[in-house]
Amino acid sequence: MIQLIQNEWMKIWKRPATIVMVIILLLIVAVVGAFMKHQQSGLTVPDNENWKHGLQMENKGYKDQLENGGLPPESENFYKKQIAVNEYRIAHDISTNVDYSVWDFVQDGSQLIILAGLFTIIIAAGIVANEFNWGTVKLLLIRPISRTKLLLSKYITVVLFGFFMLIVLFVFSFILGTVLFGFPEHAYPYLTYYNGTVKEQSMIVHLIIYYGLNSISVLMLTTMAFMISTVFRNSSLAIGVSIFLMFMGTTITVMLAGKFEWAKYILFANTDLTQYFDGAPMVSGMTLTFSVLMLIIYFLLFHVLAFYVFKKRDVAA
């Protein structure tokens, strides 16, 4: 299996387009960094000695909004979270007087996960379909290796490529952010809020978890593209459908969720697990356990379709 993965990995990197993808990702991170540096030039956070009073006044405004009622669930949850976090800051003397630093830049860089995902989808869409288009699939299938191992090696290679792109994004954002913005003068924790409880978390741990949670939708779309590529042997169809759903899937799901409760069973209602930590579920009644279960079901469904069709397909086809 390891040898098969190595072969697939080398085949990916022999294509000039793969190198171009990495270069584009690095260039865009650099452009974003330069823009942010220009925006931050000469600006510092004022040393507000009355920051605790400011947080108390902010909490009073939030509490008044909650008492008035009539708020949508996402706003209500947001206010409750902010109140709890602000009270924790006041109680533990965690100041809000913090300048923009490398940690902020790395978190802002997570917006480019969608670009890394786009490149991964392109690889996933072609890794099987191109074998049929080029006629090389016959050379693979005449080997004394099961079709399951062949297809699994291709999928694992795709996942490794996506993981590699995420590492490139994270590490380069960290290095560039360190050079441009530096570390904060005083180490400060990230305050997490879940089920009414506020806890401190190191920034590096928070960012790793944050990148991981924001990569779930990319993993699911990549798996979908891989399945379409395997079933229909058409990389263009796999890329087109996956990219369309990447940009429109959540929007369409939100529209349906506003009218139909069954929208919670749609894939894109469950890919954003941060909704359980930073906001409200897309559909009332959804839970973290429910979303994880739905993701597992979709993940297995995509693979069952891909492996079943690949094992049954005629080599001559």
Rank of each mutant, 00 (worst) to 15 (best):
N97Q: 10
N97W: 15
V98C: 04
D99Q: 05
F105G: 03
V106L: 04
Q107V: 08
D108A: 11
G109E: 06
Q111R: 15
L112W: 09
I114G: 05
I114A: 09
I114R: 04
A116N: 00
T120R: 05
I122Y: 14
I123D: 02
I123H: 07
A125M: 02
I127Q: 10
N133H: 13
T136V: 13
V137Q: 14
V137K: 03
I142L: 09
P144K: 14
P144A: 01
S146W: 12
R147G: 07
L150N: 08
K154Y: 06
K154Q: 04
I156S: 05
T157Q: 12
T157G: 09
V158T: 14
V159M: 14
L160N: 03
M165A: 08
I167G: 11
L169V: 04
F170G: 06
V171H: 01
V171P: 13
S173R: 04
S173G: 03
S173Y: 11
G177W: 13
T178A: 03
V179P: 00
Y194T: 08
E200D: 08
Q201K: 01
I204K: 06
I204G: 06
I208P: 00
I208W: 10
I208C: 02
I209L: 09
G212Y: 13
G212T: 06
S215M: 15
S215Q: 11
S217V: 11
M220L: 14
